[in-house]
């Protein structure tokens, strides 16, 4: 696991994040508890086609479903106004997975939760959000494994 120290994190966020210290503190708390999430600066493409370098937390979270634990791949994008706006959250299916749309997930994998809708700093934070996701996904997983490829149908030949 790549170790991202606080200085490096602050440097990554220095250009545009208005509440950098708050954001760094929250990211550190999350990556301390969820070792399979890591902070990554990457280009986020908005609905209007514009893109911006934003901080994301990408990786997997452990979700318990029917007695087994699955590492569900997610990506949380932090706007430069974070924590005064909620993160934009997606499930990121691998090629062997398919999205299960529902009231919490759309066809693009975007995650909708009351916790995000009602986001308000400082009552809301990334660590609690992830805990909520883990509970919700444990009841309704956002991804399932794709069916294994069936052998091609062989027409009967006399």
């Amino acid at each position: 696991m790549a170790v991202v120290n606080e200085g490096a994190l602050k440097k990554m966020l220095s250009k545009q994040y208005k509440y950098r210290d708050l954001t760094v503190r929250e990211i550190n708390n999350v990556i301390f508890h969820y070792k399979d999430l890591k902070p990554v600066m990457d280009a986020y493409v908005f609905n209007d086609g514009s893109s911006r370098e934003l901080m994301s937390l990408a990786g997997t979270v452990p979700v318990s479903y029917r007695g087994n634990v699955y590492n569900i791949p997610i990506c949380l994008w932090l706007l430069d106004s974070y924590p005064y706006n909620p993160p934009i959250c997606f499930v990121k299916p691998t090629s062997t997975m398919m999205i299960k749309t529902g009231k919490h997930i759309d066809a693009n994998g975007k995650i909708y939760l009351p916790y995000l809708h009602e986001w308000k700093h400082p009552q809301s934070d990334l660590y609690s959000l992830i805990q909520v996701m883990i509970v919700v996904f444990g009841e309704e997983p956002p991804v399932f494994s794709r069916p294994t490829t069936q052998p091609p149908f062989q027409p009967f030949q006399a």
Binding site: M1, A2, K35, D36, K38, G59, T60, P62, Y65, R66, N68, Y70, N71, I72, P73, K92, P93, T94, T96, M97, K100, P141, V143, F144, S145, R146, P147
Partner: peptide
């Protein structure tokens, strides 16, 4: 590789 967990998902939804 960074050693993160391998993503996994429940068996196919039916």
């Amino acid at each position: 590789l960074n050693g993160g967990a391998v993503p996994s998902a429940p068996p196919t939804y039916t």
